[in-house]
Design a protein around this nucleic acid. Sequence first.
RNA 1: CGGGAUGUAGCUCAGCCAGGUAGAGCGGGCGCUUUGGGAGCGCCAGGCCGCAGGUUCGAACCCUGUCAUCCCGACCA
Length: 484
Amino acid sequence: MASGKPESEQVPPKTPDLSTWYNAICYKAELVSLSPVRGCVVLRPYGYGLWERLQSALDERFKATGHENAYFPLLIPESLLTREAEHVEGFAPEVAWVTQGGTETLSERLAIRPTSEVVIGVMYAQWIQSYRDLPVLINQWANVVRWEKRTRPFLRTLEFLWQEGHTAHATEQEAAAEVQQMLDVYVDVAENICAVPVYKGEKSASERFAGAAHTFSIEGLMPDGRALQAGTSHELGQNFSKAYDITFAAEDQTIQHAWTTSWGMSWRMLGALIMVHGDDRGLRIPPRMAPIEAVIVPIVKAGNDEVALAARSLFKRLKDAGLRVKLDERDLRPGNKYADWEMRGVPLRIELGERDITQGVATLVRRDKAKGEEGGKVVVPLDEMVDRARGILEAIQNNLLARAREHLQSHTFMVAERNEFFRMCRERAGMIDIAWCERPECEAFIKVETSATSRNLRPLEGGPTACVACGEPARVRAYFAQAY
RNA sequence: CGGGAUGUAGCUCAGCCAGGUAGAGCGGGCGCUUUGGGAGCGCCAGGCCGCAGGUUCGAACCCUGUCAUCCCGACCA
């Protein structure tokens, strides 16, 4: 009887086909819908709720580090876009263009922003005159468009939501510190809010942002062994300030070019969260990210509204205590509601029926535990509910992070032997950690052979050693993996 | 952009090969009985068979084109 689940309600298992599972979850949990526009999704209210959680986690950290929000135009005149040569070249294949306004053909094409370094740079050139104007610390919440060949909900869509921070500084050191500070904000949000553990490090030359001097990223590992870049932070050096004339009078009377940075995280982070935590029953949302932390399911019997009243009173108490709680009074059988909220990944379910009420308790079921797993179901006295619910939510948050970290660690391999390195890259074994020469030719060869690329790099510790892939002198340690 | 596959009811799909005018399960609505893991019975609604052409007396089915989605590859700051 427990297996009487209708075929049509099921979602395909998470393994072995992560891709099919992922798509099904995104639609069934009502996060997104396909739209009539190729490659563009509609973010539905529940999906938007997730995005808002991510937004507020990031935004409060941006504010805490002295940044302000502003908004710049969607359209960029072609002549402005083409000033930073490397930048243009990098983005050219994915820029969408507006060529007509109303019935008139435009004299100059307008690019739909693939990112905003250009427009923001032009404005910074106007705003910055003196060292006293620096630093400029601005963030923008925006949509951008990149004409991708292959799209997937959250991970890669033509239009997507993100934030892009853009700062200008008087010195290279200050800009570098900003870039590391924001990278650490991304690590904090990924791990402590989304419960997605990541590796941070610098990008290789071939993976670097077009026009940047240094690009840093955070990289998570998905269950299929592919890596996902979930946030980037760039030292733009003076490349953009030279292209867009961002100069200032320094204390020593000289005119200098500002040092700029940019950093971004998109709704792609949500894709990572979905893949890392979800299971065969649907989404599993870490409590700090959950639009709904707990759902109360009253188990009502006909002709007895005692349960409904108790449920409403419990709902009010939890809500007043500040929990994001939902009372599900729909006219459905409890089993349907359980399955429904499990699909949506609500961390905690509070079941309240006659049996509970007579004993002054409610039954709590944790979404992070499998059915029948130790500790998955606990009975809690109603008058202790607020504190106990809080405690359990925290435990769920920790448990999801611990499990994800365990997966990342057990799928990270420090490899010293060439053939083993190539084999593991091909097999998508996980994050393959090697001593590396950092040469683009070497990276290109690895990519051709295995379709893996370097994810990010960190300093080489210990004595001199050889590149595991090619035998030349190693300069860094690098994680290699196939990437999303 | 190359290779492959698929578009039929809200969802999952059958029907197509051997053309004859639309089906199932689930879901949805109403009623009754139910409600501690995806209920039961009865009634009802729902589809220009992705779109556009062509062949044919007749096309969901055959042909051409096109759009979209999925998988593999290329590309993806």
